[in-house]
Design a protein around this nucleic acid. Structure first.
Lengths: 185, 185
DNA sequence: TGTCTGTTTCAGAAATTCCTGAAACAACGG
DNA sequence: CCGTTGTTTCAGGAATTTCTGAAACAGACA
């Protein structure tokens, strides 16, 4: 399979960024390929397009599935598995945030709870307090994320687009300020 | 230097999580140590506490400085450099978000702009459109982040604490709904 | 200038992660 | 039961990243 220069460059970029994003080159490239592809692709399509080994592609697909970043499709009279990415980009963003939280935040929160739930040894009072403070902050942020995660995309996007205007609904002391309907968009 | 079991466990955890967070074990441990420490520490203190080589610690400190996660201190009549983490956790969160954006998002945004600014070759229309869509979404999110980054912490925390109630200020179609002052906290 | 105290750089050793090809496995149809 | 088609596992080689010790560097001061 041959790939246009435009696609090629996008795919290579995702491969390079992969390590910064906590995935590897193969996973990055496979994802980029699927993201751009109009039709679902099977593992061998990907091997043909990117030139990785079959097993490497298999691993990459498994990894992407564990991230919930690809959807599995089947065709009638075809035993092969075909893969796509969700069309809705916001769904992708939600997945990314949820997975990163699961991998990068939750384990630390668990550890912090474990470490701060026991009574503080006086000699460690400072460290204990600092951990408790961190734990509290992370809990506050994850609670907020839980709230947003349940919200419909339209509402989220509306909030997003309010941008700086959001700040106007609370005063400097964090109290709610009554607002009036703005110009309807 | 000897370290209590509580601190030890926190530090080791940060070391292990380091790779998931895009830093390495040394950097993670050094950061954790500084985070817990009541006084500023110099490089040799860190070597003594963690047992890494002097040069490794030097590299780690440089890396932390590039992330803006540590502050440099000097003592009168002492040429050594001492390091601390900011006391304000929200300042740390801001740094983290800003730096991750710079490393993980901005390069991709640049690449997407580069790839989508040229007219689409008809054969690539699909891929071009998908990239444009992604670019637009990222621009929307970074614009939002820019807005929030300028906001004072009190306001941000207030918004954070509103959580799900935030959703009530926009209706399903994304239009602003007038709200009344809630019970003053 | 020489030495003392501290930081930085760098080549290569050590450790880790990534990738491959081969073999094992699994499901299906004849 | 066997062959066909597809997926998964795994040992080990390749590549990358991390870490170290030694040497270079930089500034202060006698």
């Amino acid at each position: 399979m041959t790939i246009s220069a435009l696609r090629q460059e996008f795919i290579l970029h995702f491969g390079e960024m992969g390590s910064r994003w906590g995935i590897n080159r193969t996973v990055g490239q496979v994802y980029a390929l699927l993201f751009l592809s109009e039709q679902p692709l099977c593992a061998d399509d990907i091997v043909g397009a990117l030139g990785f080994s079959r097993s490497n592609v298999s691993m990459a697909l498994k990894e992407l599935q564990s991230w919930n970043l690809v959807r599995l499709r089947h065709r009638p009279d075809d035993r092969r598995e075909f893969f796509t990415t969700p069309d809705d980009l916001w769904e992708i963003v939600r997945c990314l945030i949820a997975e990163r939280r699961k991998r990068e935040i939750d384990p630390t929160l668990t550890k912090l709870r474990e470490l701060t739930m026991t009574a503080p040894d006086p000699a460690d009072a400072g460290a204990h307090a600092r951990m408790a403070e961190l734990r509290q902050l992370i809990e506050q942020m994850t609670r907020f994320h839980d709230d947003l995660a349940h919200m419909e995309t339209e509402r989220l996007v509306a909030l997003l687009n309010m941008g700086a205007r959001l700040g106007r609904i609370v005063d400097g002391a964090g109290r709610l300020i009554p607002i009036r309907r703005q110009k309807p968009s």
